[in-house]
Each structure stands twice: as structure tokens, then as C-alpha cells.
């Protein structure tokens, strides 16, 4: 029963189904419970919250990540799965503290000053929440001092910066510089992403990591967390 429910959660993450009304990638599954219903059922059945997250949601998303890398999945397929994980995590949220589940770490994410694009940042945020991190999203067009103040106040382990424009990506370097000027650089790891950004650029501004896409961003943060 337990294993069956958990594997159904995993399967429905892979299918990208939030509720029973959603279509999946395979035909003929509309009407069967989606991630929301299955997570609720799993909680009611007394299944450990940790198992729902690790064996159901996260494992499902790992499969999606592999399919995305193998180009079997495209961005919309990945997003549907990310939405399903987000919906599952929202239901689990009130149970996390009670179950003694600790966050893997806190991450502040922001689209840098001058840049209004935030869909990429939102995707990364969902993937990070699904992977067990606490995410504080500062939004878009966030100026450097606001990010510095948030780092001082929230004491995160990571800062994730996003930019979609060549004209604003340089502001990422300003944030890293300002973190240093305020004595905070050695307290956080900074990971950057966005269409015009590259590993070389990340290195040139002194970032700790670069995520070419949402999954790679999570992988970089996981590897920095365990380093």
C-alpha cells in the first residue's frame, strides 16, 4: 500500500499531473488521482512525510531531469512536472516541521536590477523547493543593496541570481562585489543563471556556480551543499 502510493506519486510527477482532471503524457489517465490527491491520501495513511518527498516527489523529478537531459522531455513537460511537485510540496508544507524534517538549506533567489524577467527564476525556485530547500524569492528588478540586506537578515547558504539580458547580467558581478564589501561573501555561495550567462562569465565575476538550466542549477547547488 505504502510503496504503491509512493510509486503512484512518483509516476504522476513524471506525467506532470497535479489533479485527477489533468491529462498526462500518456493517454487514458484523466480521472485517476493526480499528485495532490495522492499526497493527501499518503498523509492520511500515515506514510512518513520524508518518504513522500524523497521517494515520491524528488525521485519523480530526478526521472524528469534525466528525460530532459536526454531530450525526451521538453520545457513544457518539465514545467508540468515542476507544477505537480510544487502542488505536492504546498500540501506537505504544514507537516514538515511536525515531522522534524529539516530544510537542506536556505536560498535567496532574485532577478537582478534592471531585469524584469522571472519565469526562469520561478522554475528554479520550484525545483529547489521540490529538492528540499527553503527558497526566499525577492522577485525581479531587485537592486544590489536589497539582496545584500536580505543575505544579512536571512542568513542563507546560497544566493541564486538570474538575468535574461546582456545589459543586466553585469549586475550579477555588482552583487558579488557588494557581498564582499559588506563582509558577507564567505558566508554564501552564489550561483547564477539566465540565457546570456555562461560558465566562463560565472567564473569571471567570481560566482561559485552556474546553472545552464533549472535541473543543472539544482545539481550545482546540491554539489556545493555537499562540498
Amino acid at each position: 500500500m505504502t510503496e504503491d502510493l509512493i510509486s503512484q506519486i512518483m509516476e504522476n510527477v513524471i506525467q506532470g499531473r497535479v489533479t485527477r482532471d489533468d491529462e498526462g503524457l500518456d493517454e487514458g489517465i484523466v480521472g485517476q488521482p493526480g499528485v495532490s490527491e495522492l499526497v493527501q491520501e499518503a498523509i492520511a495513511s500515515g506514510i512518513k512525510i520524508e518518504d513522500i518527498i524523497n521517494q515520491g516527489l524528488t525521485k519523480g523529478m530526478e526521472v524528469v531531469g534525466k528525460k530532459f537531459e536526454a531530450k525526451e522531455y521538453f520545457i513544457p513537460d518539465m514545467l508540468a512536472s515542476a507544477e505537480a511537485v510544487g502542488a505536492g510540496m504546498e500540501i506537505l508544507e504544514p507537516h514538515l516541521t511536525k515531522s522534524g524534517i529539516k530544510s537542506k538549506g536556505k536560498i535567496i533567489v532574485a532577478t537582478v536590477k534592471g531585469d524584469l524577467h522571472d519565469i526562469g527564476k520561478n522554475i528554479v525556485s520550484i525545483l529547489l523547493r521540490g529538492a528540499g530547500y527553503t527558497v526566499k524569492d525577492l522577485g525581479n528588478d531587485v537592486d544590489t543593496q536589497t539582496i545584500v540586506a536580505a543575505v544579512r537578515e536571512e542568513k542563507p547558504q546560497f544566493v541564486g541570481l538570474s538575468a535574461l539580458l546582456t545589459s543586466t547580467m553585469t549586475n550579477m558581478g555588482d552583487v558579488i562585489q557588494a557581498l564582499g564589501d559588506n563582509g558577507l561573501r564567505d558566508k554564501v555561495k552564489v550561483v547564477i543563471g539566465g540565457a546570456p550567462v555562461s560558465a566562463e562569465f560565472a567564473q569571471s565575476i567570481g560566482a561559485d556556480g552556474y546553472g545552464a538550466d533549472g535541473f543543472k542549477a539544482v545539481a550545482v547547488i546540491e554539489s556545493l551543499a555537499s562540498a
Binding site: 513544457p76 514545467l79 515542476a82 507544477e83 510544487g86 522571472d118 519565469i119 520561478n122 520550484i126
Partner: peptide
Amino acid sequence: AEDGLILQAT
């Protein structure tokens, strides 16, 4: 996006 419907938003 605020409602968490990232696919639809995209």
C-alpha cells in the same frame, strides 16, 4: 505564475 501555473504562464 503567482498561482503556481508555470506551464500556463510560460
